[in-house]
């Protein structure tokens, strides 16, 4: 059964893919590739524009990706929230401090996310192209990657995804079919040393 959650997960993995390994995506267009970063960290400012609302919700925080440890997405303002995804599953710490866990063993779709993630890191774009039509435009510094979902459940939720990268992710925009929009600006992004 395709749940809203798994659809969101597809979006999430796409987001992570694009944010973390744009050069791997570029491989599809036969552009000479730099070695994909095995890990990086950045600050972010996320603006969520909800359909029917004038006032968007702005949040700030930091993201860290490690091929070994997984993803850490930490919102620091306006409230504190932590999202961790590792090989064993997902853990969320809500603003009131309560923790929700999702065991990978009981959510096989998490394994799919991890698989796509690793495929992308190793330069395998077949998984991404399974969901999107990929178009790459060279910029003065870096490049713009445009993703249009192929017909299917993904296309029912996402209209378009746009990414700007220059070795590390700079900016990401997701336009949803509902009229909602997510803009994420990555600041001070840097490649970090991979933990042993």
């Amino acid at each position: 059964m395709i749940s809203m959650k798994s659809m969101a997960t597809q979006l999430f993995c796409a987001l992570l893919l694009i944010a973390s390994v744009p050069s791997a995506v570029a491989g599809a267009a036969a552009v000479p590739l730099p070695t994909p970063p095995k890990s990086f960290s950045a600050r972010f400012v996320e603006t969520r524009t909800l359909p029917g609302f004038n006032q968007p919700l702005v949040s700030r925080g930091q993201v860290a990706f490690s091929r070994v440890r997984g993803v850490l997405w930490e919102v620091t303002a306006p409230y504190h929230y932590v999202f961790k995804m590792g090989p064993s599953g997902v853990e969320e710490q809500l603003p009131d401090g309560s923790v929700r866990r999702l065991d990978a063993e009981h959510a096989p779709w998490l394994a799919v996310v991890r698989h796509i993630f690793i495929s992308a890191l190793t330069g395998d774009t077949s998984d991404l192209e399974h969901y999107f039509d990929v178009r790459i435009t060279a910029l003065k510094v870096g490049r713009r990657i445009e993703l249009s979902p192929k017909p299917g459940p993904m296309a029912k939720a996402i209209k378009h995804i746009s990414v700007i990268e220059a070795g590390t992710p700079q900016f990401l925009r997701i336009d949803e079919t509902s009229g909602g929009r997510i803009d994420i600006h990555f600041l001070d992004a840097q490649v970090t040393a991979e933990a042993p």
Binding site: A8, L16, P51, V75, Y81, E176, S178, G180
Partner: peptide
């Protein structure tokens, strides 16, 4: 705050 969440789902 969930990076897997979508803006449009709020409604």
């Amino acid at each position: 705050a969930n990076p897997a969440g979508m803006a449009g789902v709020f409604g």
